[in-house]
C-alpha cells in the first residue's frame, strides 16, 4: 500500500503539486487523472524522489520513504515506469530486463525471464536484439516487464497508453488488470486517457493545477458527466 500525505512540490516559486494526499490500496489500481500540466508526472517523480518534496510524506506499507534515495526504492518494492517509458534503446531487450532484477539486488534467473516472456511473447523473439528496434507497444511491454522483474509491491506507471494504438492499449491494460488480480500488485496509473484508465481502475483521483479536485470510485467518476467534461475531456 502506498500512502501520500499532504505532498507539495514544485520547480520554481509556483507549486506544481499542492497538498496532495492519496492512498493506493493493496491489490488495487488507482488512476491519477487530469489534463496536461495538472501535475501527474510531478506526483510520481516526487514519490520517487526525483523531485524533492517541499512538504508532506510518502510511505510504502507504513515505511516512510522520506530520505530514501531513488536508487534504493526498487529494493524496497517500488517500481516507477517513467513518462516516455525509459527503454534503454542502446541495450538489448534481455539486458533491459536484467536491469529490472538487479534493481532489487538479485540475479536474473531463467525462470524470471521465462515468466516475462510468457506474459509478453513478442519480447521473447526480440530478446537478444537491441531494444532500439521495438515498436511503441513492445517498448511499453518491455518496461512493464522490466519493472515486474524487480518484484514490486507498488508499480507507478506514467501514461503507459501515450502514443499507442487503441488495440495495444486494451491489451496492455487487460494484462495489468490480470497482474493485479493474480499477484496482488498495487498500481498507480497516471493517465490523460481517462476513459481507458477508469475502465480498469478501482479508484480515481483527479488533479487540476496540482491539487486534488475529486476522488472516488472509478465507476462513479466515469459516470459523472460534469466532471468528465470539466477535467477528463471525454
Amino acid at each position: 500500500m502506498l500512502t501520500v500525505d499532504n505532498l507539495s512540490a514544485g520547480y520554481g516559486p509556483v507549486p506544481a503539486l499542492d497538498d496532495v494526499s492519496l492512498t493506493a490500496g493493496h491489490g488495487e489500481i488507482t488512476a491519477v487523472l487530469g489534463a496536461n500540466g495538472a501535475g501527474k508526472t510531478t506526483l510520481l517523480r516526487t514519490i520517487s524522489g526525483l523531485v524533492r518534496a517541499r512538504s508532506g510524506t510518502v510511505s510504502l506499507d507504513g515505511r516512510p520513504l522520506t530520505g530514501v534515495s531513488t536508487e534504493d526504492l526498487p529494493a524496497l518494492g517500488l517500481a516507477h515506469v517513467p513518462e516516455g517509458r525509459g527503454v534503454l534503446a542502446e541495450l538489448t531487450v534481455e539486458e533491459n530486463l536484467r536491469l529490472g532484477a538487479l534493481g532489487s539486488r538479485r540475479k536474473t534467473t531463467a525462470a524470471d525471464l521465462r515468466r516475462i516472456y510468457d506474459l509478453f511473447p513478442v519480447l521473447a523473439e526480440r530478446g537478444t536484439g537491441l531494444a532500439h528496434v521495438l515498436s511503441g507497444g513492445e517498448r511499453q511491454m518491455l518496461v512493464i516487464g522490466r519493472a515486474l522483474l524487480s518484484r514490486p509491491k507498488v508499480l507507478l506507471l506514467d501514461e503507459p497508453s501515450l502514443g499507442l494504438a487503441p488495440k495495444v492499449v486494451v491489451q496492455i491494460f487487460e494484462l495489468l488488470r490480470g497482474l493485479v488480480r493474480d499477484d496482488g500488485l498495487t498500481v498507480v496509473l497516471v493517465e490523460q486517457n481517462a476513459r481507458s484508465a477508469l475502465s480498469i481502475a478501482d479508484h480515481g483521483v483527479v488533479l487540476n493545477l496540482g491539487k486534488v479536485v475529486v476522488r472516488d470510485d472509478a465507476a462513479t467518476l466515469a459516470a459523472d458527466d460534469g466532471l468528465r467534461h470539466a477535467y477528463l475531456g471525454f
Binding site: S48, T70, E71, P74, P82, G86, L88, L99
Partner: peptide, 12 residues
C-alpha cells in the same frame, strides 16, 4: 545511456 532511468532501476 540514461542516468535518470538507471536510478529508477536501482543503479547507483
Amino acid at each position: 545511456f540514461n542516468q535518470e532511468v538507471s536510478r529508477l532501476l536501482g543503479v547507483k
